[in-house]
């Protein structure tokens, strides 16, 4: 399998595997953002990063398989992600109005 190497004169062809590896790395970074941050908005940003990583994998598959269905699925994911960001930020505004902070631990006091 051809790989990108820094060796002089090596054959450098970008394959599907490179895109999938990049997608996996971005997904892991988004997961770490959700795990170690306490700000609700930054956690939402981590979720957006994960969704984008999945989109990248799907578009790469669509390109290398010559099948346009992956693009359509990525389009659907984008729309749902926009809706999800709207709901999450609405909840964050609600939390901030009550507790004057956007920490994740405030979620347990939110009811009704």
């Amino acid at each position: 399998m051809p790989a990108i190497t820094s060796a002089v004169g090596a054959v450098t062809i970008v394959t599907l595997n490179h895109y999938l590896a990049l997608s996996g790395v971005v997904f892991a970074i988004g997961m770490v953002a959700v795990l170690i941050r306490r700000n609700v908005i930054v956690m939402l940003m981590g979720i957006e990063l994960m969704l984008n990583a999945v989109n990248l994998a799907m578009v790469a598959f669509a390109h290398y398989r010559q099948d346009v269905s992956g693009n359509i699925l990525a389009f659907f994911v984008m729309t749902v992600a926009a809706a999800e960001a709207g709901v999450g930020l609405g909840l964050a505004v609600n939390i901030f109005k009550r507790f004057k902070e956007v920490n994740i631990k405030s979620f347990e006091h939110l009811k009704g």
Partner: peptide, 15 residues
Amino acid sequence: LVLAIRQGVIALNVS
């Protein structure tokens, strides 16, 4: 993930 992708044989080379 990266290791699994390297080991896998999903390298579709129909660029």
